[in-house]
């Protein structure tokens, strides 16, 4: 657990993240460029959905990322409440706007895919509705963090709410199995293996891996910003207390 404790020092985290960021950007570009090339020029069109299958290469990775970001926030929340790790609520707070953006991308691209395939921009289907709930939960958590001035108190309240809201993750994942939905069932993460053809699976996995690296880079930047924001707040409080004493 030494590495875990090493990260408890924000200054050490800032130094390490500054070294990591260029590698993350570079790796993301190295994976995304061939991923999108394959998605557009090598993957065939779907026998039923035609060219709209190209939307899958952004829709699915961002759906996964929207859920993975929330899972990361739930783990960070445990870190806040159980281990009181100084960077845990920084991580959770920094991840929330990213998760909200990913959920919004998932909903928008899903809508652009749904209209030509289903004939509707939106249906109150279990998968779509649970994803919308995830997006609203992100907005609620961002509002909570902004409503409470003390970041430690805000972090604890948000951690409890995040953990309660994590019940939505299995609902999103299994909504297509538990209910009769218009949304297609899982075709990659299945007990009996992927049902998607390899010519589409490889670019999908590449774009998903590249966007995950992109998320990690954005998350590190957001965490660095949050650490700086807390330093500014601390110094302003100290400056104010000095002014009162003087």
């Amino acid at each position: 657990m030494n590495w875990f404790n090493d990260f408890a020092n924000p200054t050490r985290f800032l130094n390490l993240s500054a070294k990591l960021l260029p590698w993350l950007w570079g790796l993301a570009a190295l994976i995304l460029i061939p991923g999108f090339y394959m998605a557009f020029f090598i993957a065939p069109e779907d026998y039923q959905q035609g060219q709209t299958i190209r939307i899958m290469f952004i829709h699915v990775p961002f759906a996964w990322l929207a859920m993975a970001t929330y899972a990361l926030m739930a783990i960070s929340s445990i870190g806040t409440l159980v281990w009181k790790h100084p960077l845990a609520d920084v991580s959770a707070k920094a991840a929330a706007p990213l998760g909200a953006a990913f959920a919004l991308i998932c909903l928008l691209t899903g809508s652009f895919w749904g209209k030509p395939m289903w004939g509707a921009w939106w249906v109150w289907d279990a998968r779509l509705t649970s994803m919308l709930v995830l997006f609203l939960m992100y907005l609620g958590l961002i509002a909570l963090w902004n409503a409470v001035e003390d970041p430690i108190r805000a972090g604890k309240a948000a951690a409890v709410l995040t953990l309660v809201g994590s019940i939505n993750l299995p609902i999103i994942k299994f909504s297509v199995d538990w209910w009769n939905t218009l949304h297609q069932p899982a075709s990659v993460f299945r007990f009996d293996g992927p049902t998607i053809h390899i010519s589409m699976l490889i670019p999908l996995l590449l774009t998903a891996a590249g966007m995950t690296l992109l998320f990690l880079a954005l998350h590190l930047i957001a965490m660095r910003n949050e650490i700086l924001r807390r330093r500014v707040r601390t110094l302003r409080l100290l400056e104010a207390s000095r002014a009162v004493e003087a």
């Binding site: 060219q51 939307i55 961002f62 706007p97 990213l98 991308i105 652009f112 930047i221």
Partner: peptide, 24 residues
């Protein structure tokens, strides 16, 4: 076929990611 929907998907994604990066 459905070029507009595909283009709108990628443009909206790029726009949201761009706004996110700019905000950061």
């Amino acid at each position: 076929q459905h070029f507009g929907f595909i283009l709108a998907s990628y443009l909206s994604t790029a726009l949201i990611l761009g706004v996110l990066a700019l905000w950061l």
